[in-house]
């Protein structure tokens, strides 16, 4: 194992932590943060795994850029929906978790 493999290993830890938080927490903002932690972990696996033993690979780096934009768009949309839901209901959780 060389230096490049550090990234996917850290990515796995981040994914597992994010998944745990996503399941355990009910507050929507926390769940959204958990999703973003998982996303970062996934991106680390994507870039790091492909570059192990082969040097720089521009393809996964470009994929991750695309992935980041998609994640930013999803997170922003989730925040807009979350704030509107909070505004009409006064709750920061889904109705079944209140």
């Amino acid at each position: 194992m060389n230096g490049a493999m550090l990234f996917p290993w850290v990515g796995i830890v981040l994914c597992a932590m994010g998944l745990f938080a996503f399941i355990v927490h009910r507050h929507l903002l926390r769940r959204l943060l958990a999703f973003n932690v998982m996303g970062s972990g996934t991106f680390l696996v994507l870039v790091g795994l492909a570059q192990d033993g082969r040097g720089v690979d521009p393809v996964p780096q470009a994929l991750v850029l695309t992935g980041i934009v998609v994640a930013v768009a999803s997170t922003a949309l989730a925040l807009v929906i979350f704030r509107r839901w909070y505004r009409v209901s006064g709750h920061a959780r889904l109705p079944e978790d209140v």
Partner: peptide, 24 residues
Amino acid sequence: AMRYLLAALLGSLAYLLGVALLYG
């Protein structure tokens, strides 16, 4: 919509992780 979005995001992330492993 919020519930659907959370499920959709989690689903696509699991899918993307699979893609990462396949590309690697």
